[in-house]
């Protein structure tokens, strides 16, 4: 062995290497980050189908089949003209449905009433298992 070879061998022994054993662990951590990041909070809410603007969608109904809930400007509620509290709405609608399963619930909200109160009413109506619900809208 020459002098140069011996010097090279000595140099190689002392060479510091960057440890690469944890590279895959780092990759997996980044992978988990990119898989989890796009996951967002689920969208929850109440779904409805509005009546279309066409005249063909309007169907005449008997007045006895309609239960009208009104949200007044003061956020007070009436059911068919009689004052009612929010917790009693569900039971009242369930009673109406038990007597007449064709009952259509019409929710009429004053333009100055809170949207939150309308949703609270709609929630009670949905919980009463009313299938036919109509939201009254008016153009100001």
């Amino acid at each position: 062995m020459g002098v140069l070879d011996a010097r090279k061998a000595k140099k190689d022994r002392g060479l510091n290497k960057i440890p690469t054993a944890s590279t895959s662990d780092v990759a997996f951590l980044l992978l988990i980050f990119f898989i989890v990041m796009p996951m967002k909070r689920p969208e929850v809410g109440l779904s409805m189908v509005l009546p279309a603007k066409s005249k063909a969608s309007s169907v005449p109904v008997r007045e006895s089949n309609v239960a009208t809930i009104r949200v007044l400007a003061s956020n007070a509620l009436t059911l068919d003209g009689e004052l009612i509290t929010l917790p009693r709405v569900r039971l009242a609608i369930m009673d109406r449905l038990a007597g007449n399963d064709q009952t259509i619930v019409v929710l009429e909200t004053h333009p100055d009433a809170d949207y939150g109160m309308m949703i609270a009413c709609l929630d009670e109506v949905k919980q009463a298992d009313a299938r036919k619900v109509s939201l009254k809208t008016t153009k100001r």
């Binding site: 779904s47 409805m48 509005l50 949200v71 100055d112 009433a113 309308m118 939201l135």
Partner: peptide, 27 residues
């Protein structure tokens, strides 16, 4: 939740005109 319903009603009227009748009230 404190929005006056009149604004929501106006928007819904616009949706009816556009025939976008499927709505979802986020909670």
């Amino acid at each position: 939740k404190e929005t006056p319903y009149g604004v929501v009603s106006d928007v819904m009227e616009g949706l009816k005109e556009a025939n976008a009748v499927k709505v979802f009230f986020n909670t």
